[in-house]
Design a protein around this nucleic acid. Sequence first.
RNA 1: GCGGUCAUAGCUCAGUUGGUUAGAGCACAAGAUUGUGGAUCUUGGGGUCGCGGGUUCGAGUCCCGUUGGCCGCCCCA
Length: 438
Amino acid sequence: MATFQTLPGFRDFYPEDLAKRTQIFRLWRQTAASFGFVEYDTPVLEPLDLYRAKSGDEIEGQLFSFTDKGGREVALRPEMTPSVCRLVGARANALKRPIKWFSIAEFYRYERMQKGRGRCFYQFNADVFGEPGPEAEIELIALLIQCMRAFGLTEKDFCVRLSDRDLWFHYLAALGQDEPRIRSVLGAVDKYERNGHDAFKGYEESFGPMAPGLKQGVLDFLGIRSFGALEKALESSGASAGMAGRLAQWRKLLGGLGAMGLSDFVQVDLGVVRGLAYYTGFVFEAYDRRGELRALAGGGRYDDLVGRLGGSELPAVGFAIGDMTLALLLDERGLSAAISQAPDVYCIVGGEPERKAAFADISRLRANGYRVDYPMKEMAFGKQFKAAADSGARIALIYGTDELARGVVKMRDLGGRTERDFPTSEVEAAVREFFEAR
RNA sequence: GCGGUCAUAGCUCAGUUGGUUAGAGCACAAGAUUGUGGAUCUUGGGGUCGCGGGUUCGAGUCCCGUUGGCCGCCCCA
């Protein structure tokens, strides 16, 4: 038994684990680049106040925070949004717009572990700054969907549930609610899926029994599953100018996603309002279709946050995908594939004199970018062939006494099980030819 | 922070009412095998039975505590 373990909630990545993670990162990067997003990064350690400013004091319980040797209160980053708001806000006037940025980074939260949740995890974050209209949401939701499809996931595996906090505000205001009451109702909406009618208890404790019309209005809204139904619901409740304005935004957003051929991935569902209250417009979450896992990704519009954290006012939309739930889903669907770490060439070496000759070629081939491996210790030929096959290499180069006496090296195609001799001077060219022929 | 459950080899697990030196399969290593493949056979290394205490002549087994894993609640930026 090992004397030391990882801290609770932290993970070791053995090579086979890291290969999977690297593959996930690689596909995220590729996808983001194909959408014209550029990558940035920020420090792992930030001033504690950065997170207090965004989320309030109560956030501290969920942070890895401490006082550093200079007496500064600091925290390991629990999310990317405040940091990226700082970056963008500081150069808001100098950056060409729209600003399309992404990052892949590790985050830390002092929380109890659960399936799909640990104390450290990676997130892909993507944000669009400087674009107030739903064009930004179109781009981001399309990116989110492609970031899943890149792994082979389809509309049968996941969907993006789309909602609108701004519309909720207009709708609840029309039902006679003031702002504190609206926030309380939204809190209940967030819990409704899990807790049913108990979700409204908090509201009733603060503000007294809910008017039957209000409750029915909320439940009606929660039942909406299509844009047509949404239009109809707002019509019958006498749409205000604010609601009409939101409907126009919805039309544009859904129209754009439809034109990209993504309608099957998008589900109107006003039950998604997202936990913390800084979202100001559209909000969305990606879920697996079977509903067995935690949310795969989530995001929305936060037009006020850059101003609060970064200095300059700047409209913004963003989302994050976590690595843990996605990895669970990929495993479940048999879609997790690691990057091959097999060598291209495995050298089979007779003895010490042959080893010298092999080393010259090994060194040259490696310098040319081929992945080359060989046994470190003298080993029987039979074992070496087995090792070559086990390694996953495509070809074996055989440096035996007989071959070197004839001035050749034998090259074996491990897949085709064919062999050919090459003069020692031509080995490098022969290897190159083999791989270029593919 | 709360509740449930579990903890024996790198992995998956056996281990009888408490009874000798704690086992198997897989994996790993060596040999059979001094030049040709994912096989077979033989052999080997690897354990403070999570940790600490208690009961007992005797504890992997029973009791208490503790740490950690998993699952759920709270939370989920």
